[in-house]
Design a protein around this nucleic acid. Structure first.
Lengths: 194, 194
DNA sequence: ACACTAACAGACAGGTCTGTCTACCTGACC
DNA sequence: GGTCAGGTAGACAGACCTGTCTGTTAGTGT
């Protein structure tokens, strides 16, 4: 085996493809990245990519699933770090936003960015709606456990804030933005539970 | 002159191009609409389009300027309709969001959608940042006149909410979302001025 | 030793996109 | 009548993009 072309440089071919797609798609948007670029950067043959992801759309959907796991995971972790009180968790989850803003290459909400360049009513849209629904349901549950009289409303208000902070990140990942979102969250939670 | 090909069906060629681009770009995103489509739908010759807008990017920027005028105008009008008290105006401007959600073909924030598919640091990004800055400065002024102790913070919180409501519209223009945003605004304004 | 699987390398077809260019037409003004 | 600005119609070049196909190579299990 030659050292210049190791068979599996880092994980399986599928993982390399998906990791590369994740990075490129997030930075430039799926439509801004050609399949050839993904192939070149992941060091994979074209046939291999099309074997694992028959259409480019399949790769985009896999990318969105990866984003979903990462973001929802970060949200849950941030809430858990805020302690046991659901009220604190509702505010603490905004630390996930603060962390995201600080990360190098932060570029806003992958779902909204992708949905913006995808045809309405397509699979990408459906997947995005699904993601947002799951997150909101989780927040609603948290709001209910915190004792909010209108948990659906509070959840909508908080996810709205979260989306606003995320979406604005396409322009600049100013952490002040995330901090403002967190302070808003505190005010809204206090107002709802007063 | 034949009736089948009137010289100027509706306004100048430039206006027809820009109106068509506005409609198509907003619905599918600038990158999702080819120059040929704009030409076909506006009933204009290719040379004419490229005379008025030498690069497609110029057309995209003109589109963003049109959006800026429309949205900022709607925001100011909604605030004015809420009465003379700056405090009411800060909440009232969210009626512009409610109205946008109700409009047929609502598809989220044109600026964020366009920025999502444009290279970072380009002209489109700069124009978008400019737009958001102008809006936030206007809200900050309103917050100051309302007597907020930290007008910059309140403005950031409210524009965050506005962006969240706007951005989420890529998926569904649910008016409940806009209403939740408005109730959040009321809570935040009250909390800031308490 | 042999078959099989997974991956590599890259040519290729068919389509779309931006932007340029030529040729023609029409109405207004001098 | 002559000139000119602005518009129409559409061919064309060159780049890029998705998806298919052929042929080769390395490792694995039997």
């Amino acid at each position: 085996m030659s050292a210049s072309a190791p068979r599996t440089p880092a994980g399986s071919a599928r993982d390399r493809i998906l990791d590369t797609a994740f990075r490129l798609f997030y930075a430039h948007g799926p439509r801004g990245v050609g399949v050839d670029t993904v192939i070149a950067e992941s060091g994979v043959a074209k046939a291999t990519l099309y074997k694992h992801f028959p259409r480019k759309d399949d790769l985009v959907l896999a990318y969105l699933d990866k984003v979903d796991q990462a973001w929802f995971g970060a949200l849950c972790a941030a809430a858990r770090n805020a302690g046991d009180d659901p009220r604190d968790q509702l505010v603490g989850m905004f630390d996930a936003l603060v962390g995201a803003c600080r990360r190098e290459g932060y570029h806003g909400c992958a779902f909204i960015n992708t949905a913006a360049e995808s045809p309405t009513g397509g699979e990408v849209h459906a997947r995005t709606v699904e993601h947002k629904t799951v997150v909101r349901a989780w927040v609603t549950d948290l709001a209910r456990r915190a004792g909010a009289p209108e948990p659906e409303l509070l959840a909508r208000q908080l996810t709205l804030l979260l989306d606003g902070g995320l979406a604005g990140g396409v322009l600049d990942g100013d952490p002040a933005l995330a901090e403002a979102a967190k302070r808003s969250a505190r005010a809204l939670v206090d107002a709802a539970l007063a």
